[in-house]
Amino acid sequence: SRHTFEINGERWTVEGVSEELKEILRAAERASNDEAERLLRLALKLI
């Protein structure tokens, strides 16, 4: 499935992501810059 999210003013669209990964991306959208970066690094390990 496709998911579009915005982090630090940048929009991203990813396809074929699991519900778990979507949850991480949604958390990154709400997080501070440092926390968002940490969550994105974690998410990339899952891809």
Rank of each mutant, 00 (worst) to 15 (best):
S1L: 13
R2T: 15
R2A: 11
H3C: 14
H3N: 09
H3L: 15
H3R: 03
H3Y: 12
T4I: 14
T4A: 06
T4S: 12
F5Y: 10
E6A: 01
E6L: 14
E6P: 03
E6M: 09
I7L: 03
I7F: 04
N8G: 05
N8V: 03
G9N: 04
G9P: 00
G9C: 11
E10Q: 13
E10L: 10
E10H: 10
E10G: 03
E10N: 07
R11I: 15
R11D: 05
W12C: 05
W12Y: 14
W12K: 00
W12D: 00
T13S: 07
T13A: 05
T13C: 13
T13I: 14
V14A: 05
V14P: 01
V14T: 04
V14K: 01
E15W: 13
E15N: 07
E15V: 13
E15H: 11
E15K: 05
E15M: 09
E15Y: 13
G16S: 10
G16T: 11
G16P: 05
G16I: 12
G16C: 11
G16D: 13
G16R: 04
V17H: 05
S18C: 15
S18K: 03
S18I: 04
E19Q: 09
E19M: 06
E19V: 07
E19D: 13
E19P: 10
E19T: 07
E20S: 08
E20N: 08
E20K: 08
E20W: 10
E20L: 09
L21G: 02
L21I: 15
L21Y: 03
L21S: 03
L21C: 13
L21Q: 03
K22L: 15
K22W: 14
K22C: 15
K22H: 14
K22T: 11
K22P: 00
E23K: 10
E23D: 12
E23C: 13
E23R: 08
E23N: 12
I24E: 00
I24K: 01
L25N: 00
L25K: 00
L25C: 05
R26N: 08
R26Y: 08
R26V: 09
R26A: 12
R26K: 11
R26H: 13
A27T: 08
A27G: 05
A27D: 07
A27Y: 05
A28H: 02
A28Q: 01
A28P: 00
A28T: 02
A28L: 10
E29L: 06
E29D: 04
E29N: 03
R30Y: 07
A31C: 05
A31S: 10
A31G: 05
S32T: 13
S32P: 15
S32G: 12
S32R: 07
S32W: 05
N33E: 14
N33Y: 15
N33W: 15
N33H: 15
N33S: 14
N33L: 11
D34N: 10
D34V: 11
D34I: 11
D34L: 11
E35Q: 06
E35S: 04
E35G: 03
E35Y: 05
E35L: 08
E35T: 06
A36C: 05
A36E: 02
A36P: 01
E37S: 09
E37L: 14
E37I: 11
E37G: 06
E37Y: 09
R38W: 09
R38A: 12
R38T: 07
R38K: 09
R38I: 10
L39G: 00
L39W: 06
L39E: 00
L40H: 03
L40G: 01
L40S: 01
R41T: 12
R41F: 07
L42D: 08
A43L: 11
A43E: 01
A43R: 00
L44N: 03
L44D: 03
K45E: 15
K45G: 14
K45C: 13
K45V: 13
L46K: 07
L46C: 11
L46F: 08
L46M: 14
L46S: 05
L46H: 07
I47V: 06
I47P: 01
I47C: 12
I47E: 01
I47Y: 06
